[in-house]
């Protein structure tokens, strides 16, 4: 398939290896991948902060850039949820609603796209015990995304998934929430890390750039490096992905 890669602003700026891993997974699945360097951000940070006008401007920009794409794939659940669900609520001007409605179903989260097209990687191996963190919008706003990820991980050999009791509790990032309620935000992330540390997992895997920055930031402040906090795309590439 022709896939337009949508690399969210946080990934581009802070976590380029997640973007590279996403591109590698898509290519390994036999897709032709393109990346439009004019892309920036879907507008979610502004929307979540209540700056609707700014969010709308970027939503329209997104529609201009990706409107003709056959498939738009992003390694971030919340950005996909923003485009698929929230653009319609901004609201968009009437003349753009149709463009959005046509595009929205073609914007997909990476793992969900790979599973739907039957192009997930096979024959990978990642040795270790792994905890999952279900990124909120990935879990609650994208039907089937979590199931898709579990299927993908279940095919990875030597991987032992440990069920953490609060796997679906929020990590506390929440965009501007992290700045407006920093104490509560850090407490949420700390509890998450405590649980993973106590479970003795080697890795904590998630599906969103925001969670990754939040949990790595708290872990760094603690001066620790276990468990490793990974986007699942990074884990799959480590697992021996071959193009």
């Amino acid at each position: 398939m022709e896939v337009s890669l949508f690399i969210p602003c946080l990934v581009d700026r802070f976590l380029p290896s997640v973007g590279e891993a996403a591109a590698a997974l898509l290519r390994a699945g036999g897709h032709r991948v393109s990346y439009d360097p004019r892309q920036t951000c879907c507008g979610q940070p502004a929307f979540n902060a209540g700056s609707i006008r700014e969010a709308r401007a970027l939503a329209l920009r997104f529609l201009d850039l990706f409107g003709d794409a056959e498939a738009v794939v992003a390694p971030s659940g919340s950005c996909v949820a923003m485009v698929r669900h929230r653009y319609g609520e901004l609201p968009l001007p009437d003349r753009d609603l149709g463009r959005w409605a046509a595009l929205a179903p073609r914007v997909e989260e990476l793992g969900q796209f790979l599973e739907r097209t039957g192009t997930s990687p096979r024959g990978l191996s990642w040795k270790g015990r792994l905890g999952l963190h279900h990124s909120c919008h990935f879990l609650r706003e994208l039907d089937g995304a979590e199931a898709a990820l579990r299927r993908i991980l279940s095919r990875v050999r030597d991987l032992d998934v440990v069920e953490l009791p609060s796997a679906s509790a929020c990590c506390g990032f929440g965009g501007t929430f992290s700045a407006k309620l920093p104490g509560v935000s850090v407490s949420m992330g700390s509890d998450k890390l405590d649980e993973a540390e106590a479970a003795g997992v080697d890795g904590l895997v998630l599906a969103d750039a925001g969670c990754l920055l939040q949990l790595r930031g708290i872990q760094a402040a603690r001066g620790r490096d276990r468990p490793r906090i990974l986007h699942y795309a990074e884990l799959l590439v480590e697992g021996g992905l071959r193009p």
Binding site: I7, V11, D12, R13, F14, L15, P16, G19, E20, Y35, P37, S178, A179, K180, L181, P182, S185, V186, G189, S190, L213, Q214, R216, G217, I218, A220, A221
Partner: peptide, 17 residues
């Protein structure tokens, strides 16, 4: 809120683009 108990992320030397 990105200091002290939670360190800020640093921009990558080479961004994805």
């Amino acid at each position: 809120g990105w200091g002290g108990l939670r360190l800020r992320p640093r921009p990558a030397e080479v961004p994805f683009r």
